[in-house]
Design a protein around this nucleic acid. Structure first.
Lengths: 233, 233
DNA sequence: TTAATAGTGTCTATGAGACATTATGCA
DNA sequence: TGCATAATGTCTCATAGACACTATTAA
């Protein structure tokens, strides 16, 4: 670690908060109030302050800019291309988080922030060549966050983080379908989820649907999913 | 991204170069010439210079400190605890890479660097409570690198990156055994590898062993491994 | 009744784990 | 000959995929 010039280099954190809304995977964005990229949409985030943990920076800036308080952030990766910010060299440590949208308005984004369906964004990295254009290299970060979510559904019980409790197996299945963009076989999905101890816990209650009422479940204690549910080749 | 105080914060890159040597997973370390942690062993790495890609910093400092030239680095994660470096706030972007050790001395570490078997290191994060103590939080980085390697063996053909060409299936199997620390069933492993198109390509040659001579193979073009080879619960 | 979704049961194909057996070198 | 490792064959079990069928509500 030889010391070289390291001034004029900023460190920031950005957060890709994902949810499933109206059957679509969505990400929380903020409309930028200032240049550069004024009025364009960007991930919430900001610079690291002295003696502040990176994850705390992510939580703090997320709360400041969107009003969302999320406690379990997961580091995604770090983006440091020299010209990714036109003002100066900024290395950003991106975090990803997953949340359910409940009916409590206190948990909804405020100010210039809102959720956007991934499908409505211009994300070349996901072969989406039209839609809302994002500031900086944030389309790349969103693409990586989406891939992280897709991968984690395979081998963890993350899907249940996207649904509000209590939930039905149909709702849980539609999370998989929204994130992976494919349809899953209802009966096999049920067998798999119920056959994994600790994935979900039955409440004994039922909820009305468009058809037969469905059993309600809560999240179980298990976080790993073994064997995994694989997306296929 | 509101601008706040961001001076006095350094950005560095560190590299965990992994290999399999004498049947053991090993990592390339450098004995520190200066304080802090003088004479202790650390990952090669150094500060990012102006307008330098993070990956280039990693490659450059690896080459400077160890003489190893590795072109395919993969970002591992970023470590930014406020006091991880006693001198100043330093955020380090860690990279991981995988290499085979051939007989060419040009590809061996030089100077104060050498490979250390993971088993000989003090890595609390891997429940290894005695052995060589590493500088900074590098035992955590090494632990994460080892876990990355273990995971990638499952769903990619990474294992072949650890063996010098040409290689036998026995050598390839011993890579899995060294990295995962378990023994694999020889016949099932062979069926799996040969049943995955593009994992290995037969050369037609054979190599002597302690028993029957073994067919020799080269790396194939496939990088994904489907279905994966799973370590088990 | 029909439509819609929840939920159960079962057949089959695939692939992993386990094991037996043969092949081929060397001491 | 015995030993060590390579290589092949096969049986079994777990599980995913597919599909048929029943259950329960609302319109």
């Amino acid at each position: 670690m030889a010391g070289t010039d390291r001034l004029g280099l900023g460190v920031a954190c950005d957060v890709a908060l994902l949810t499933v809304r109206r059957g679509q995977l969505a990400v929380l964005l903020v409309q930028r109030p200032d240049e550069p990229y004024r009025d364009q949409w960007a991930l919430p985030g900001g610079f690291v302050t002295d003696d502040e943990e990176l994850e705390v920076t992510a939580e703090r800036t997320l709360a400041d800019e969107t009003g969302m308080h999320i406690s379990h952030l997961e580091q995604l990766r770090t983006y440091g291309k020299p010209n990714r910010d036109p003002r100066a060299r900024v290395v950003t440590v991106a975090y990803v988080a997953f949340t359910a949208l409940d009916d409590d308005p206190a948990n909804h984004p405020v100010g210039r922030s809102r959720f956007w369906a991934i499908d409505d964004l211009l994300i070349p990295e996901l072969d989406q060549c039209d839609g809302l254009s994002l500031a900086f290299d944030h389309s790349l970060i969103v693409a990586d966050a989406v891939e992280r979510a897709r991968a984690k559904l395979e081998y963890t019980t993350l899907a249940s983080a996207f649904v509000d409790e209590p939930f039905t197996l149909g709702e849980l299945r539609r999370v998989y379908e929204a994130v992976w963009g494919i349809s899953l076989h209802e009966a096999n999905f049920r067998r798999k989820v119920l056959g994994t101890p600790g994935f979900v816990e039955a409440t004994g209650e039922t909820a009305p649907t468009d058809g037969r009422p469905a059993q309600l479940y809560r999240r179980g204690n298990e976080t790993r999913l073994w064997p995994p549910i694989l997306r296929g080749a």
